[in-house]
Amino acid sequence: MDKNQLNDHRTVLLRYALLQLHDEAVAEDAVQETLLAALQAGDSFRSESAVRTWLIGILKHKIADHYRAAERHYSLGEPASENKDDPNTALEQLIFDGKGHWIGAPSAWNNPDHALEQGEFWGIFEWCQKNLSEQHARAFMLREMVGLETEEICQDMNVSHSACRVYLHRARLGLRECLEQRWFNTKRKS
């Protein structure tokens, strides 16, 4: 593995670390140590996805080390969700009726790409992520921000394949609903 490849992985690792450590400097350190460890370990990996999984494995150890050293307990993800106790059915009952039809059908989003350029949108995006249940948010983050495959997410979260599929779907349902209510239905431009 060469330095360029490591750099490519760096971004992904940093996202992962930031979401767990909530501190840029600490996250940078953890990633730095991970990459150093990876460089020293040499080049026994060929496929990119194997490298990524391996690097995240190292990073998780670094993050765990940090928690131990700090002797503090952060709760990972820490969503402020009220339906944490019953994340399984509550969401879908709000979104679909008994016959499986949309209750609040998705509305048309006006120029969604424009939202990506607005700082305010990201505040809403973050807020909506935090309002997902912890497991849903974590699955979504691993899939869409870290870029893991579903298999890897199941392993990371130590859940069955069907469970992580459900988490991902509910995360998308919840996030979509939230963004629609908090952003697209309120900020619609003419």
Binding site: E24, W122, G123, F140, M145, E180
Partner: peptide, 23 residues
Amino acid sequence: QQVHFLRKAAKHYYPNENDKNLP
């Protein structure tokens, strides 16, 4: 379309850096 947008948004999302843009 919207789940595709969620993926796109997630790729652009960078925690902390975005905090700097927040009002």
